[in-house]
Design a protein around this nucleic acid. Sequence first.
DNA 1: AATGAATGAGCGTTCATTCAT
DNA 2: AATGAATGAACGCTCATTCAT
Lengths: 200, 200, 200, 200
Amino acid sequence: MGKREKTKAENRQSILDAARIVFAELGYGETTVRDIIRRTGLASGTFYNYFKSKEEVFQALMDASALRMRPRIRAERIRAGTFEQFVSGTFKAYFDYLAQDEAMHRVMRRNSGSIRVRMDTPEVVAGFDEMRQDIERAISQGVLPNVDPDYLTASFVGIAFEVGDRMLARLPFDPAEAAEFSTKLFLGGVTALPLVAQGK
Amino acid sequence: MGKREKTKAENRQSILDAARIVFAELGYGETTVRDIIRRTGLASGTFYNYFKSKEEVFQALMDASALRMRPRIRAERIRAGTFEQFVSGTFKAYFDYLAQDEAMHRVMRRNSGSIRVRMDTPEVVAGFDEMRQDIERAISQGVLPNVDPDYLTASFVGIAFEVGDRMLARLPFDPAEAAEFSTKLFLGGVTALPLVAQGK
Amino acid sequence: MGKREKTKAENRQSILDAARIVFAELGYGETTVRDIIRRTGLASGTFYNYFKSKEEVFQALMDASALRMRPRIRAERIRAGTFEQFVSGTFKAYFDYLAQDEAMHRVMRRNSGSIRVRMDTPEVVAGFDEMRQDIERAISQGVLPNVDPDYLTASFVGIAFEVGDRMLARLPFDPAEAAEFSTKLFLGGVTALPLVAQGK
Amino acid sequence: MGKREKTKAENRQSILDAARIVFAELGYGETTVRDIIRRTGLASGTFYNYFKSKEEVFQALMDASALRMRPRIRAERIRAGTFEQFVSGTFKAYFDYLAQDEAMHRVMRRNSGSIRVRMDTPEVVAGFDEMRQDIERAISQGVLPNVDPDYLTASFVGIAFEVGDRMLARLPFDPAEAAEFSTKLFLGGVTALPLVAQGK
DNA sequence: AATGAATGAGCGTTCATTCAT
DNA sequence: AATGAATGAACGCTCATTCAT
């Protein structure tokens, strides 16, 4: 790598770093491109050598985040011998990822005023799409009964998102607990759920 | 009602109507106050006789929507004799409402650029809180086993949101189908799900 | 006076009263017509039945103020037997008026930011013009030597304004002292000035 | 100086020039930032690269003006051997400055509508404060009798302002005449004033 | 005569983006 | 490739004024 490319890569990275911090501080809506470049020390024009817009940095950020998540989830799926292991592994991988990447997740929840906001980027969505293909494959292979794969994936995603969100409201984060709950519910419904200890 | 008051009410309504359309077209983030007033044909200053900001119209819109939804869902819950009826009735009421109030729901899901967004206003949040209290009551009354009510509500909401979202992608809308799927999954898990007809 | 006219006079007066208060609070520049009418309890449109603009109320206010001043100053002049009495009486009348009408004067000095502002209205200017005519008459009658009446009036006014301004910075106001100083300076120059007591 | 810096300096100057003209035309109160930039031919946003607000340009203008004035006046004071020379030199320096910097002075006197306004910025105020200190020093050194220095400075300033104002109404400007009049009045009062030539 | 909602010009300001250096 | 000043469209918002009631 020549010196030229190194600086290029460094600049790109410092923009991404600055963006992550600023998005976390101000939320997506309130952040301006100027806020980001100001933080890098680079000139305003330089930003446009690397990204076309605020949205593009944001997506790059999200994608980088999702990029860290997808291989883990995929690995879990591959390792899984049974459908239960597949479900449980996927939930666990997602909640683990969430717990580690909490700051990024908070960005997606950040808002100004009293309106709660949540954002999903294509890469995140793609991660779940991949799972949907797995589910469809499972159905066609007879591993799963012939249920509605679209709704099933949607349900999985919905549970993951919302339970994940609640998990981040509890300290310390307990991804294992969240994964156990989600898996039990997803596989066996309410009646299969783990009981809460009395004292809790 | 004098002519003055009538026009006032009409103006307020036409701002709300315009806002609904524009939010649905552009998404919340990209919508400006000017976009809204432009659509009404009213003068720009008139907007500020009725709302202080974009957020305020948005909340009024959401709250009005939530206001239409909550009583229906509550009515379902009250009517329910069993937990199954409670769950099924709530899902059904929500999906019915969604089918009717589709435009409003699209606003909440609107993606600006390629970022998916979901928004909750206080009134919407309150709607789900109410359900959560029902679930907690059900647990304390022994109708439901002693499970984690927070995660359970989250799961319910997650399924409702995501399945509802998918439902709106299918024409014609079939709230009954969506409710049946969701209820079965929520109560009995994957294994309890209805099978899809072969030809489908 | 019929009831109609009474209300009319009352409304006009209450606008003037409100204006005086608001101008004193916010200064001329920062005051809006809305601020004034809001204070009266009248409807915004009603303002325009009485005044054409903010400036017009302000002038009415100033004129009312000057109207209180001019007769006093004129009375002093008429009473005066000598030029010294004329000068001394005029200064005294002006400083007395200033001390009493302090609030109004503060309005004229009020500003936003760090820029000091002083305002004179036509009626105030007219008050000093009248004096100028007196001076010219005094010259043509031989009471005063044949000096430049324009510069002389200007000097008189300048001393009155600036010394008056400083006087309002001292508590308690001492118009007699200010008048003595101004008169001595005007008539006899620096060397004629009263000495300050040692202890002072 | 590179081309970039040159244009920067030019732009700053052209904003100041435009501001001076517009302030003189409309008066401070009626001038808007947009009036100024419209006059420069620059883009609206460019204004904000140089000044934060209307007030800031105004102050820069006044300060530049006062900056030109103060050294001259100070030089006169230093040169002065007697109190009379001090007074005469200061008046002369001020009126000379006024005659040259007429446009700036008109800004300070500009009447918006029929309201006459005078403005002092911190730098201007500092200029007069300096003189006041000189006067106090003169008193403590016995050059001046022990008179009220505050009122004396105020009188000096008042005469300078008002006579200067009248001077600008006469063409051609005659600073020497104004200075002679003011000095005589200030030092010896009315009786010391120069007589006006018969034919005048 | 009083009302007060509607009007719309215009304000200050921001900001993504361009482009000469 | 980096810079950063210039650009100008567009924003949120205010406010004097009008005019139907």
